[in-house]
Design a protein around this nucleic acid. Sequence first.
DNA 1: GCGGGTAAGTGGTCAAGACGAGTTGTCGTC
DNA 2: GACGACAACTCGTCTTGACCACTTACCCGC
Lengths: 253, 253
Amino acid sequence: MVDKTSGVPAFRQVAADLRGRIVSGEYAPGDRLPSERELVEHYHVSRPTIRDAVNLLRSEGVVVAEHGKGVFVRPPNTIHRLARSRLSRAARAENKGAFLADAAAKGFTPSSSVKVRFEAADERVAEYLRIEPGAEVTVRDRVMRANGLVVQLAVSRLPRELTRGTPSEEVDTGSGGVYARLEEAGHVIGHYAEHVGARMPTPEETSALQLGQGTPVITVTRVAYRDDGTPLEMNDMVLPADRYELSYEWAAE
Amino acid sequence: MVDKTSGVPAFRQVAADLRGRIVSGEYAPGDRLPSERELVEHYHVSRPTIRDAVNLLRSEGVVVAEHGKGVFVRPPNTIHRLARSRLSRAARAENKGAFLADAAAKGFTPSSSVKVRFEAADERVAEYLRIEPGAEVTVRDRVMRANGLVVQLAVSRLPRELTRGTPSEEVDTGSGGVYARLEEAGHVIGHYAEHVGARMPTPEETSALQLGQGTPVITVTRVAYRDDGTPLEMNDMVLPADRYELSYEWAAE
DNA sequence: GCGGGTAAGTGGTCAAGACGAGTTGTCGTC
DNA sequence: GACGACAACTCGTCTTGACCACTTACCCGC
């Protein structure tokens, strides 16, 4: 079953064979793969070699292992689509944050917890908000859950001057959220920018978002600007890549 | 150095210790870590355990291993920013595709190779292009390189009816690319949509993009629509997540 | 001085074996 | 019939030992 003369490592050959059986449908999503011992017999290689092969598939996000139960073909996840329309004033007027509106549409029970703190801007934050490094910023740390499961982390930062003495420094910002408070204070939002990337999660993110091995995270840094171009707020979001897709639309110029 | 009573697996403790030394700056980007044999002596665990720890860091994208040389702290990559303005007619008029314009700005030597083929639309393609599954589509398979290195894969699909007998079915589409040919044929592009996700690369993508272990890819599906809302083209792009960031901007509604 | 070969060091692969820990079904007891 | 203990499975961890492949630098011969 394994060609030792090909120069290709045995564990890669085993992984390739299993991957092929998965994409061909021989093992369907949710199916259990043969146990490691069965694979040892089938391919005539040692157990560590089988484990190397399975670990490769795990790091690719193709399968997930469950202790005591077996190794399963990763079932496809329901994808949440986040569109930029989630930020319209119309939505805010209905007292719905982006997350709550999504929950209502998708039919899950949302919850979230917020921590507020103040810190000095590091270089990256200072650049995005166009303030001096070291200047004080208000930080709103937010964990969003759907049906109790953590699905999104968000860290929002604003120059402290914009929030001093306003509900934006409280845990509960009131109807419409921070953006509504900003506009009440005369800071009308003119446009948004989002910068999207992806990377592997830190160990903290892995446990917080309960990510399976081989699942990257999508990072979104959104910056809200006033009419005159002054940055008002930046928001660093971390989303599990297997559960989210972002959509953007714009007219051709 | 490793606490066997804590319940935390040895290889995770080693990985956590090394990770800590990296984030603290003890090992700076580009530095070589101690060799596996040295780590064996230092932590008093077996070599496979050390390798498990290093592999964990590799899958996190924290370090990269080079055969015969050592394990190195991953140096930060230069990030290419892709903004949506890359699709303006003004840029097309200058006979620059998005990729060429980027190259000129960043100062690298671009090259790309294209393969054209025809195939039947599968379900996903049919849905995006709003055609019947099985209908013929023109497929333009493109590999983009910067200084000889592959940096981007793109698969463009158009309904065959739109391209029959036009340069869009040739390898060289002429000045301004496929979009220019579409507009000449009366299909004026009204708006674009992009759907952004991330996942771990397939083995083919890993070798084509020369990705290090622990590097996800960003997937972008761009759809170009005519004024009346008819989909004209879809473009599946795959970008190495450690080299790209996408930026979007829009006015507040 | 230059070139090539070689040795030492690096990570890559693989085996055989042992024990731990979580899960599930079964079978006996109450 | 219900419950609990146990057995038999699963994957998780770790060791010892071995050999291979790649890189680098040194050294010797020319």
